[in-house]
Design a protein around this nucleic acid. Structure first.
Length: 583
RNA sequence: CGGGGCGUAGCGCAGCCCGGUAGCGCGCCUGGUUUGGGACCAGGAUGUCGUAGGUUCGAAUCCUAUCGCCCCGACCA
C-alpha cells in the first residue's frame, strides 16, 4: 500500500477525555475516533488490525472444528424472556421497540439466539457434537464505559457455542477450545496466561479466562511460577498460613489503644507485626417477611488477618451470607457491637452475630482484636480459651504474594491482566429453559449440553497496546500490525536513486505477500518517522541517498535501539528473514 | 446510581471570579525557501463560546434548567 493512496490521520496531542495509554495511542495513531461514550469509529488503520485478528481467529476456530455462522445484532425480546435474562440482565441490556411497539434487544451475547437455532435444527445425537461461532457486534450499555475500546459499549466479539450429547463430550469440546485459544493468542504474539475463573451464578467448575499480561489490567492473577497453577484472584484459593494452631502463650488482656482504629496503627502502638492482628468486617443481609416487609437484617462478622483483604466473591459463597450481602451501617454496628467501627471484635457482643473466621485467623494464637469499647483492644486472644470457636471457618481473603500455592508446588505471585477471552462450560443452563433437546440413542429427548467461548476482538487491540508500547507509540506484534513493514524514503520525489531502490524493494515485498506500507506522502523525515513509530509498524526500512551512495540502506525493528546497515541488494531477503510470517 | 469535574476553532488550552469588539499554540489553506527526526518566512480560513430559558442597555462571563463528556466509587462479569 502506498501511503498516498491510504488514509493516515495522526494527532500530536491526544484528546483530553482519553484516559489510558492504549486509548490515547489509538486516537493519536488515527486507528479510532470517538463517536459517543464507549462507541468508536474504526478508522482504516484500526480496521486493518481488526481484520488481521479476525482472520487468525477464524483460521484457528475452523481448524478446531467450529463452524461460522452469523446471528443478528437486533434480536426479539421473546427469546430473552424465555431464559429470564430479559429481567436478569438489567439496564446493561439495550432494549428498543420497533414501529409496532414490539420489544427487541441489541445482543450483548448470543446464547438465546444460538440455542434457538440448536433446538430447531439439531434433532439427533448423530448431529453432535457441533460448535457454532460468529464474529459480530455486541452492545452492552455499561454504566461507566471507560478505557477506550477495552470497556466500550459497542464492541466486536467472537462468540462460540458448543453443543454436546453429554457432559463428558462437552468436556472434550471445552478442551478443544482451550487449546485453540492458546494457538490464537500465541499467533497474535501476545504474552498471556489462561487462569481459572469464577463461574458466577452459572456454577460448575469449568471456566478459564485468557488474560493478556499488562500492569494496567483490571484483573489480578495469582499464579505459581514453579507450577502451572494460575487463577483469577477472585477464585485463587488461600490456604491457612499456619500448619496448626499454636498453644496460647500470652495472658488475655485489654489494652488501651486510643485513636488507633486501623490494624496498622494498633500493631505499631503495641510493637507487634501486623500479622498478629485480626480485623473485623461487619456485613448485613437484608430480610423480609412473607409480605415483603423488611425485617432486621442478619449481621455477620468476618474476621481477617490484619494484613489481609476480604474477597467478596468468596464471602458470597458462604451458605446463608450469599450474594446479596452489603456492608452493615453504623446503627446496625452499634446495636450489635455497642461500639463504633475501629474497635470491633468477636468478644463482648451486645447481640449475637454469625462469626466467620478466615482459615488463617482460625489457626492464629495470641492475637489482637478490637474490644468493642472505644479506645481499647484485646491482646493475647485465643480461640477456645477466650472465645468460642468460630461459627464458620472459610477461605474469605485474597491471596497475597508468597502464599503457598493451592497445588502444593511452590508459592504464589501476583500480576495484572486484561481479560481477552473466556471459555465456559454452561451445561443445560440455556437448553433447559428453552427446551433445546435432541433424540438420544435410546430414542428419548435429552437436553443439549452447552459451552460458550468468547474473545473480545476489539478489546484485543487495547490489550495488545497496553502490553506493547513505548514513549514513541505503539509496537504491534507482526500478526496484528496494520502494516508489517514500512518503507521510509528520504527524498522519494527528489532522488531518482532513492526512488529506484524504494520501488524495487516495495514491489519485491509486495510480491512476496508482505503487508508493506510505502510512505510516499512527501512528509519531512522527522514527521514521517515519528508517525510511523506512533502507528507502530514493527519493521522499518529507511532508504536515502546518504546510504545509497555506498550501496547501503537501514533496517530497524520498532524495538531496536539503533538501525542495522544492510546492502541494498540484500535488503529484501533481510527483511523477509525478520518477519514472523517467514519464519 | 452516589460524589466530583469539564463543555470556547479539527486537537490542546486561556478568557469566566470582577459582564463591554473571542484569543494563544498545534493543525489546516496559498506562495516561497527547505528536506536523515514532528522546518522556516509571508499571507489566509475556521467559532451559533454544548443547548434552552432568564437577569441586564449589553452575557462565553451572572442565574435556572437541560444535554453531553470525563474522573472516583458502587454495580456488572
Amino acid at each position: 500500500m502506498r501511503a498516498s493512496q491510504f488514509f493516515i490521520s495522526t494527532l500530536k496531542e491526544a484528546p483530553a477525555d482519553a484516559d489510558i495509554t492504549s486509548q490515547k495511542l489509538m486516537l493519536r495513531a488515527g486507528m479510532i475516533r470517538k463517536l459517543a461514550a464507549g462507541i468508536y469509529n474504526y478508522m482504516p488503520m484500526g480496521l486493518r488490525t481488526i481484520r488481521k485478528i479476525e482472520a487468525i481467529i477464524r483460521e484457528e476456530m475452523n481448524a478446531a472444528g467450529a463452524i461460522e455462522c452469523l446471528m443478528p445484532v437486533v434480536q426479539p425480546a421473546e427469546l430473552w424472556q424465555e431464559t429470564g435474562r430479559w429481567q436478569k440482565y438489567g439496564a446493561e441490556l439495550m432494549r428498543v421497540k420497533d414501529r409496532h411497539g414490539r420489544d427487541f434487544i441489541f445482543q450483548p451475547t448470543s446464547e438465546e439466539a444460538i440455542t434457538d437455532i440448536a433446538r430447531g435444527e439439531i434433532k439427533s445425537y448423530r448431529q453432535l457434537p457441533v460448535n457454532f461461532y460468529h464474529i459480530q457486534t455486541k452492545f452492552r450499555d455499561e454504566r461507566r464505559p471507560r478505557f477506550g475500546v477495552m470497556r466500550g459499549r459497542e464492541f466486536t466479539m467472537k462468540d462460540a457455542y458448543s453443543f454436546d450429547r453429554d457432559e463428558a463430550s462437552a468436556g472434550v469440546s471445552y478442551d478443544k477450545m482451550f487449546v485453540a485459544y492458546h494457538k490464537i493468542f500465541n499467533r497474535l504474539g501476545l504474552t498471556f496466561r489462561a487462569v481459572k475463573a469464577d463461574t458466577g451464578a452459572i456454577g460448575g467448575s469449568r471456566s478459564h479466562e485468557f488474560q493478556v499480561i499488562a500492569d494496567t489490567g483490571e484483573d489480578a492473577i495469582a499464579y505459581c511460577p514453579t507450577s502451572d497453577y494460575a487463577a483469577n484472584i477472585e477464585l485463587a484459593e488461600a490456604l491457612s498460613l499456619n500448619a496448626s494452631r499454636a498453644s496460647p502463650v500470652l495472658e488475655f488482656g485489654k489494652t488501651p489503644t486510643p485513636g488507633k482504629e486501623k490494624c496498622e496503627d494498633v500493631a505499631a502502638l503495641l510493637n507487634l507485626p501486623l500479622s498478629r492482628t485480626v480485623k473485623s468486617i461487619v456485613l448485613a443481609v437484608d430480610k423480609a417477611d412473607d409480605k415483603g416487609n423488611p425485617l432486621p437484617a442478619d449481621i455477620w462478622l468476618l474476621l481477617i488477618r490484619g494484613d489481609h483483604e476480604l474477597n467478596e466473591i468468596k464471602a458470597s459463597k458462604i451458605a446463608g451470607l450469599g450474594k446479596d450481602f452489603r456492608f452493615a451501617n453504623e446503627s446496625e454496628i452499634i446495636e450489635h457491637f455497642g461500639c463504633m467501627p475501629g474497635y470491633l471484635g468477636p468478644i463482648g457482643l451486645k447481640k449475637p452475630v454469625k462469626i466467620v473466621a478466615d482459615r488463617t485467623v482460625a489457626t492464629m494464637s495470641d492475637f489482637v482484636s478490637g474490644a468493642n469499647e472505644e479506645g481499647f483492644h484485646f491482646t493475647g486472644m485465643n480461640w477456645a480459651r477466650d472465645l468460642p470457636e468460630p461459627d464458620f471457618i472459610a477461605d474469605i481473603r485474597n491471596v497475597v504474594p508468597g502464599d503457598p500455592a493451592p497445588d502444593g508446588n511452590g508459592v504464589l505471585a501476583i500480576q495484572r491482566g486484561i481479560e481477552v477471552g473466556h471459555v465456559f462450560y454452561l451445561g443445560t443452563v440455556y437448553s433447559k429453559p428453552m427446551n433445546a433437546t435432541f433424540l438420544g440413542e435410546n430414542g428419548k429427548p435429552q437436553l443439549l449440553e452447552m459451552g460458550c467461548y468468547g474473545i473480545g476482538v476489539t478489546r484485543l487491540l487495547g490489550a495488545a497496546i497496553e502490553q506493547n508500547h513505548d514513549d514513541k507509540g505503539i509496537i504491534w506484534p507482526d500478526a496484528m500490525a496494520p502494516f508489517t513493514v514500512a518503507i521510509a524514503p528520504m527524498g522519494y520525489d527528489r532522488s531518482e536513486m532513492v526512488k529506484t531502490a524504494v520501488d524495487t524493494l516495495y514491489s519485491d515485498l509486495k510480491l512476496a505477500g508482505v503487508d508493506v506500507l510505502l510512505d510516499d506522502r512527501g512528509e519531512r523525515p522527522g514527521v514521517m518517522l515519528a508517525e510511523l513509530e506512533l502507528i507502530g509498524i514493527p519493521h522499518r526500512v529507511v532508504i536515502g541517498e546518504r546510504g545509497l551512495k555506498d550501496g547501503k540502506v537501514e533496517y530497524q525493528h520498532r524495538r531496536d535501539a539503533a538501525a542495522a546497515v544492510v546492502d541494498v541488494s540484500e535488503i529484501a531477503a533481510f527483511v523477509k528473514a525478520k518477519l514472523v510470517a517467514f519464519k
